[in-house]
Every structure is written in structure tokens, then in C-alpha cells.
Design a protein around this nucleic acid. Structure first.
Lengths: 258, 258
DNA sequence: CCAGGCGACTGGTCAGACCAGTTGATCGAC
DNA sequence: GTCGATCAACTGGTCTGACCAGTCGCCTGG
């Protein structure tokens, strides 16, 4: 402590703002504000150099930041310039995947989180779903049934789509995006395990069980019984993943079953 | 369809991988694998140029990508090189904030999502909480009570911390991070509304109500009644935000009440 | 002992060059 | 005429070399 501390008036420490940051912020602002809609094109880099009056490396670093955020995409030789992609959930998936990979969150946490998001999707979807949603879900459940013991890849694809449709039927895009990101992260993280299980020969069995689960959930949705659908969804995920987890994690997952 | 379609063997379209991408991936890999723990330093850019055998602009673009992902931080003049920060939830918050800002999700969706995440935090926390958690929550609720009609800013801070402690007590770091990110996004988005409400003079009233809600939730948590805590949490959020939403959105929020 | 200055670094920025890829107009063969 | 190759004018990706303003450690003069 100094002898006389000067009067504190709310001065903020001024941190230098890099040129590439300001460029990136300006462009991001335009994109988020809708002035640069998805599909539109940014000027060429050398043109941006003129407009922003900075060096090309500065422009390129700014574009790199935007690209790593998934806001734009560029392709060498494209005379139209970088393409605006708009806000996409991929960044979210990426960030979630990184978190899942790092020690910050274990696979069990990821699955538990997926149980939460899926269950709440079901709960909301049970109230809001349309006939069209039900038709698509029925179709996807049927396709899953067809793919058992013939095409595991198509099965997974139909399964993923089933969850995606439910999440969208929940009426909450944010919830749907997060659910999808977590779904992808789980699939990425446990793919190896599932392949191993398949080698062990019980592949057809869990697929059949999964189809039954999905049909039950679908029935609950059709009956607009959100609580039941949510519970079934949690149980399905638990049954699906618990065998591949150590006992300690399994216990934690059980806590999310309710 | 062409006359003779060649035999399909699983060739993947080879997409060019940029040099800066490979550099960024290599470094990210080391960080995620824990070989470069938080706090450690990357070599200087010119040293990386030698190690990776690429130009400095390539190195810089790679570092820019890593920096925008929050994995590293660099400071001009630092003779130690860029600092490794490790995986942080900030990227997630940032991505969520962008999603919230874009047309992809309205404020109502954001709040609905927060109702879901908070409620599930309560449900899990009710099972897992420790005495220490309860002590901290009691303290925070008390502080909220003290701040009513004296320091709205401190009130908000205590409120935010209450939710953060609950989320951490849920035992799921991922859930906690998302809940925090969504909380921040909601606060960012509706700050203006709350200030307006405060001007209208009912500030003290909703703060008092909020304190009551938090105490009720705390009691439910103490009783390990997760279902009750979850329901109370949803109701508290609904009551808090519904008045500031148009009727249509309010209806959608009600759906999440259960 | 300490203050101040002097390098030797750092990251941030710029300018200019080259490469490989894309595109569209041009031009020649049919 | 149409079609296909050619070519020039772009694009983004990369490299080089330079300069600036900071930051740090050392070293020197007091």
C-alpha cells in the first residue's frame, strides 16, 4: 500500500487494439447485423487493403480470425472474394469438442450433458411438434429399423437425424444447435469405442434396442407426453453409453436419470 | 448419370490443407494433449519460422487462429513468446453470444434455454451439493438481500455468482460453462430492458421477489428436492423476464415451465 | 547501490514479390 | 456455327525483408 492513494475515478486501463482486430470487428459487425448476408461476397483482399488502408498481412490476419470463427470461407483463385457464411453452429461444436477433449470435461460429463439437452428437447417437442415432424420421425425410425445389421453407418446417420429433427421441433434453435454440437462431440469422442463394441459382435443387439427406444419415444411424443419422452430419452442414452464407461462415471450418469 | 460409372472405391476428395492450418493444428494438438500446459510459452515467431520451416506470415496466421480460439495470448515485446492459456470457456461464451445476436435465436429462445440449463443444474446439484456449497449459496442469498435497494450492481453480481455456484455444484463442468455463457448472453441482451424497468421504479420490488425465489430454491436444494428446485428455478426466471417480453414470446416461455 | 541508458530481443505492420489455382474471353480447328 | 485449347487477368497462399514501438536485461556512470 502506498502512503497516499490517489482518488479512484473510473479510468479503464487502455489496452492497445491491434489493426487486424479492428478490421475483423468491422467485418464481423456487418455480418452479424445482416448487412453481409450468408452467400454474399467480401471484396478481394487487395481491395480490402485499399478500403481499410492497411497492409495485406493485416487484412489476411483479420480474415483468418473470421474464418476460424466460421463466419467466412475463402478459396484460392476465387475471383468473387471470400464467401460470407453467416453464424453457424460449427464454431460451437468445435469449442465443445475442444472442451470435451481437454481435461475440463470428461466423456461422462459430455454424455450427461447430452442427456439433459436431449431430454429437454423431447419435453419441448412434445408440446410443439407438428404432424410433419411426426411423419419425418416415423420415417427416420423406420429407416433405422431397416439399417439394423445391414448398414451401421446409415443407422447412425438416421439416428443423428432423428435427434436433430426432435431438437428442431422443440422450437428452440439454440437448444437444437447445442444438442447437435454435443451429439457430434459425443460421436467424435466415442466412435472408437463403438467400433470396438461392433467387433465384439453385439452391434446388431444395441441397434435393435435403440430402434425400440426410439419408437417408444416417438409414441410418447405422439401422445404429447413430454415427461415420459424425456425420461425415455435419458434412459435410452444411459443404456446406450453406460456399458462403455467405467463404473464411477456410470454412477454419475445415473444421477441424471432422475 | 454417365454411361459407364467407374467402380466406387472409397476415395476421398483431397482438399488442400493450408500451411498455416497444419501449423495451427500441430500447436493446438500439443496444447490439448497437455504437452504445452497453461502458463508455458511458445517459442518466438522467428524461432517458429525456423522450426516449422515456413514464412513468418504463415506462422502469424496460425498464431492468430489459435489466439482467436483463446488457446494462446501474445503481447508485443514479450521476450518469452506467446503464452499458452489452455482451453477456456470464453470461446464457448463468445460463440453463444454470436448465435444469440444473430437472427438464429431470439431473446425468448435464449431465456428459454437458460431456464432449461438452470433447472437441470438445480436438479443435479440437489443430489451432489456439499455443505460448503450450501454455505456459499446461503451467503450469496444473504448478500443479495442486503443489496436490495442499495446496490443493484452488486445484487446482479451476487445473483450471477449464485447461479454459477449452483452450476458448479451440479458436478458437470460443461453444463456449468454453458449455463454461464447463456447467463452472460442473456444479461448482455437484456441489460437495457432492466435499466428501463429500474427507471420505472419497480426495481426494488423485483429484487425483493428474486431474493425470495432464491431462498426458496436454496431450501429445496437443502432438502435435496431436485425436482422442486428445478421447478422453482424455471418459475423464477419466467417471472423475472416474462414482463419484458411480448405476449407471443411469453407464451413460448410458458411452455418451458412444464 | 542504484538510475539511466543502451542494445538485443519481441510482436505488429507494411511492401513487394512469386506461385498455383480459377475464371472468362479469345481464338483456332472442325 | 460449335467446340476445345489457349491465354491473360485475376484470386488467395506464401515468402522475404524491412521498419516500428514496445519490453527486458545488462551494463555503466554516478
Amino acid at each position: 500500500m502506498s502512503a497516499e492513494s490517489p482518488v479512484r475515478i473510473g479510468f479503464q486501463p487502455v489496452r492497445p487494439v491491434r489493426a487486424y482486430q479492428r478490421v475483423a470487428e468491422q467485418i464481423e459487425e456487418r455480418i452479424l447485423a445482416g448487412e453481409l448476408p450468408p452467400g454474399s461476397r467480401l471484396p478481394a483482399e487487395r481491395e480490402l487493403v485499399r478500403q481499410f488502408d492497411v497492409g495485406r498481412s493485416t487484412i489476411r490476419e483479420a480474415l483468418r480470425v473470421l474464418q476460424s470463427s466460421g463466419l467466412i470461407r475463402s478459396r484460392p483463385g476465387d475471383p468473387l472474394g471470400a464467401e460470407v457464411l453467416g453464424v453457424s453452429p460449427d464454431t460451437l461444436s468445435h469449442a465443445l469438442g475442444r472442451l470435451a477433449r481437454s481435461h475440463l470435461s470428461s466423456l461422462a460429463e459430455l454424455i450427461q450433458f447430452r442427456m439433459v439437452l436431449d431430454a429437454e428437447s423431447y419435453r419441448l417437442a412434445a408440446r410443439l411438434h407438428t404432424e410433419e415432424d411426426l411423419r419425418r420421425l416415423t420415417e427416420l425410425a423406420d429407416r433405422m429399423g431397416e439399417c439394423v445389421s445391414c448398414d451401421p453407418h446409415a443407422f447412425s446417420e438416421a439416428d443423428a437425424q432423428f435427434h436433430r429433427v426432435v431438437a428442431e421441433a422443440s422450437g428452440n434453435a439454440l437448444l437444437a444447435l447445442c444438442a447437435r454440437a454435443v451429439h457430434d462431440a459425443v460421436v467424435d469422442a466415442i466412435e472408437g469405442e463403438l467400433v470396438r463394441a461392433e467387433r465384439d459382435g453385439d452391434a446388431g443387439e444395441w441397434m435393435r434396442r435403440s430402434v425400440v427406444h426410439h419408437r417408444e419415444i416417438l409414441a410418447a411424443l405422439r401422445a404429447s407426453d413430454g415427461g415420459r419422452a424425456a425420461r425415455l430419452g435419458r434412459e435410452a442414452l444411459f443404456e446406450h453409453y453406460a456399458p462403455h464407461l467405467p463404473e464411477r462415471d456410470r454412477e454419475r450418469l445415473r444421477a441424471a436419470l432422475d
